[in-house]
Simulated assay, not measured.
Amino acid sequence: MYLEAEVGQYVLKNVGSLTGLETSLETITDRNGSIVVRAGERITPEKIELLKSNGVNRIWVKVEEVLPPLVDVRKIDEAKEQIQQVFDTVATKLRIETEQVWRVSQTVLNDIVRNYGDKISLVFLVQQTDEDYTYTHEVHVSMISSLVGLEMGLKLEELSHLAFSAMIHDVGKALVPKEILLASRKLTPEEFEIMKKHVAFGERICRQSGLNDERVISSVRDHHEKLDGSGYLSGLSDRQISLFARIVSVVDIYDALVSNRSYKPSWTPYKAMTEIIRLASLNKLDAKVVKSMVSLLGLYPIGTTVVLNEGTKAIVVGVNRRNPLRPIVQIENGETIDLTEEKNLRVVSVLE
């Protein structure tokens, strides 16, 4: 659900972690139908107490950012629309419009390369339905994968193909029956076996479309493989999995965790990042890839509510790439503080 053509980070937050600085993205009513908070309205401390008293636990909010986004927000929205067209074509013609994907992925990549710096801000779309998630997810994974590749020192030619492959990494889902793909419940074991085949479908579609770059093929076919051999479909391990697939794998999991689906609630960015780090510690994900993503999105991603050492509650509004433990925060009185410049302040805890 893309709500406004303006800059902001959209996060599903626990009401108890709100700081009074967020803007609601949804209209909440009480048991009598009276409005507690309107979409587009700032959630003041008074509104927070009203939400609590009405039993509201989680709410979609927008967190204002202090940095311009790496990718123009209109380009992100346009990319999603283009990828939806690509998937629609695949479903009917079993062929990827490769020029269309290349054009979209390079437009996004160009912004990332041009705006990459020490302070990072990356905005995301919020999907409205499970079907919308598929296209939104492809764009998010392409953006973050490109950024991770840049952080890891990939050359521009490599970045171009990484951005392209990440933009279609789930293209095989176009051939998964919609009653399985869009099921609003946990899949049965038999259904999950069919779902897993989307990676094989994706490889077949790529080759039928004239795509033979093995880096691209690997991103599509192997992004659910794990370094310890516990992934699918082939149970590959370690160096059998290409760097492109390793990058897409990490980003794919992170974006899936923070996304809201009909069968599961969204995880907070902090909780999702913590899970990614845990999976790397278990040798399921590439630790170097994870380290690069933490540098970019922060250990405390934008939208995370933190508590500073002097007791102030603050919300993360920007990430310092060279010091992910010291983000840019906004405290309860609205003041913005860069923790890399305020050495006497530090994050001591996170409010989930």
Rank of each mutant, 00 (worst) to 15 (best):
E335N: 00
N344K: 00
V307W: 11
V347K: 01
V319Q: 11
T304M: 05
T340I: 07
E342C: 02
E332W: 00
I328N: 09
G318Q: 08
G334D: 06
V347D: 02
V350F: 01
E341P: 04
V289G: 14
E335K: 02
I331T: 11
P301W: 06
K343L: 09
V290H: 14
N344V: 01
I302C: 12
I315R: 06
N344S: 04
L325M: 11
N344C: 01
E332N: 02
L285C: 02
S295K: 12
G334V: 03
V307A: 10
P324A: 09
L308D: 12
R321S: 09
G303N: 11
P327Q: 05
N309D: 15
P301S: 08
A314T: 12
V350H: 04
V306A: 13
L299Y: 13
R346I: 00
V317T: 12
V294D: 07
Y300E: 12
R346Y: 08
V290S: 07
D338V: 00
I302A: 07
K343F: 10
S295M: 15
N309Q: 10
G298Y: 07
D338Q: 06
D338H: 00
V329H: 11
V290E: 10
V294C: 12
R322T: 14
L296N: 14
L325N: 07
G334Q: 01
Q330G: 07
V290Y: 15
G318L: 09
A314F: 04
K291A: 14
L296R: 05
V348D: 02
N309T: 08
G298D: 14
M293N: 13
N320A: 11
T336A: 02
V348F: 03
Q330M: 12
E332Q: 03
D286K: 10
V329W: 04
V307P: 14
R322H: 15
K291C: 15
V317A: 05
N309C: 14
G334C: 04
E341G: 01
T312H: 12
P324T: 03
R346P: 11
G311H: 15
T336P: 15
M293C: 03
T340W: 06
I331G: 08
E342V: 04
L339Q: 07
I331Q: 13
G298R: 10
V294E: 15
V307F: 15
G298F: 14
N320P: 10
E341L: 01
V294Q: 11
L297E: 08
L325Y: 14
S295E: 13
S292M: 05
M293L: 08
N323L: 02
E335W: 03
N323S: 09
N323M: 09
L325H: 11
N320W: 11
E335I: 03
R346N: 10
L296M: 12
E332P: 09
